[in-house]
């Protein structure tokens, strides 16, 4: 089973997911944040979005980022 960070019902209904799949490009270490068709890779070392696909942190729901931080992943 991939690591799938539990999301509150509201965020889940909106299509937010945070995953670490069995097969990922492992370097640099990251979690994948998904919102419907959009995807970001959040680096666990520098807390920045990795390229590709890059993107802007402000496009990620702040509550999702808070949950990631709370679990100590970032």
């Amino acid at each position: 089973m991939p690591f799938d960070l539990p999301m509150p019902r509201k965020l889940k209904a909106e299509g937010w997911k945070v995953k670490i799949r069995e097969k990922e490009r492992v370097e640099p270490p990251h979690v994948t944040v998904m919102h419907r068709a959009d995807e970001w890779r959040l680096g666990l070392r520098d807390k920045q979005l990795l390229l590709p696909p890059g993107g802007r942190l402000r496009d990620i729901d702040p509550e999702v980022l808070r949950i990631i931080r709370r679990t100590g992943m970032s």
Binding site: R21, K23, E24
Partner: peptide
Amino acid sequence: DYEASADAVLY
């Protein structure tokens, strides 16, 4: 139950 990212496969 196994998942692979499309990006990793394409890479």
